[in-house]
């Protein structure tokens, strides 16, 4: 039942211009980076910053805008003999699928063409995981806030925090705590930010962790192994699962 609704939700979004524009912009940026720089590694690093900043931003803005645009329709669905969880899950999966399609067209295809390496594949995986995580986080903001402006504002704050603020706070914390063993603390702080996790996962593949200084070397030590990567992917996975569950929990009790 849910998948039937997903089909219509995703079909509706994919027919819209916004998702096409998103895919087009990503494609232009990726092709530009690969063709102008000459060096594949440089291009991948450029693409990495795009994936780490723009992809989460578009995910949260698109998700909240979609949620508030379809509010009346969700009400109509909720008045049918359907469990609330089915309706919200269908919405979430539909949005994630549509954004994923844009990523595949705009980033995955050029990366596979120009840099089909472990790094390239990791970059694609990180982009997909971040899209799912930030879509889920934005859904939490959207189901919590009745008011559209507040919901979009809260989603933007989430992006701002993970994209910019968290790094600053991490640095400050590590500076304050420099007398203590740093492994545990920095690993915890890292796990608390999906964007940082994604960055580390890709950079570790690139062998440029020396650029990240002492912590980078340490992270290479901690996360460079297979178990380390497994751990990072698992934590990123819970950055998707936890907000999905939270949004479902809130939506089931919500007055529409």
């Amino acid at each position: 039942m849910m998948l039937r609704i997903v089909r219509y939700v995703a079909g509706d979004i994919l027919r819209g211009r916004i998702i096409l524009a998103y895919a087009g912009c990503l494609l232009v940026a990726s092709l530009g980076l690969f063709n102008l720089g000459g060096d594949t590694t440089k291009a991948l690093i450029g693409l990495l910053s795009l994936v780490l900043m723009i992809v989460p931003l578009v995910s949260v803005v698109f998700t909240t805008a979609h949620f508030y645009n379809t509010q009346e329709f969700v009400e109509l669905l909720a008045a049918q003999p359907l469990p609330r969880a089915t309706i919200l899950l269908a919405q979430m999966i539909g949005v994630m699928l549509a954004l994923t399609a844009a990523l595949l067209a705009g980033i995955a295809v050029p990366v596979l063409l120009y840099a089909c390496s472990a790094t390239g594949l990791t970059l694609i995986a990180v982009a997909l995981l971040l899209t799912a995580a930030f879509t889920a986080l934005a859904f939490v903001a959207a189901v919590l806030a009745r008011d559209k402006a507040r919901g979009i504002g809260a989603a933007l704050l989430i992006w701002f925090y993970f994209g910019l603020l968290h790094d600053g706070l991490t640095l400050y914390a590590l500076f304050l705590l420099e007398d203590f063993p740093l492994e545990g603390i920095s690993l915890t702080l890292l796990a608390l930010n999906p964007i940082d996790l994604g960055r580390v996962l890709v950079l570790l593949q690139m062998d440029v962790s020396a650029l990240m200084g002492y912590t980078g070397a340490m992270l290479k030590d901690l996360l460079g192994s297979g178990t380390g990567i497994g751990f990072a992917v698992l934590v990123l996975g819970s950055w998707i699962a936890a907000p999905v569950l939270a949004a479902l929990w809130i939506f089931r009790r919500k007055d529409l």
Binding site: R4, I5, Y8, V9, G11, D12, I13, R15, G16, N69, T70, Q71, E72, F73, E75, L76, A79, Q80, P81, L82, P83, R84
Partner: peptide
Amino acid sequence: PAPRRHIGYMPQIGRFPDHLRVGQLFEM
């Protein structure tokens, strides 16, 4: 949700997904 199968609802403001055609809406 099951007893709602007996209920038909006409909302005050009907808004449907922008890009679905009316026919698809009925199919859905």
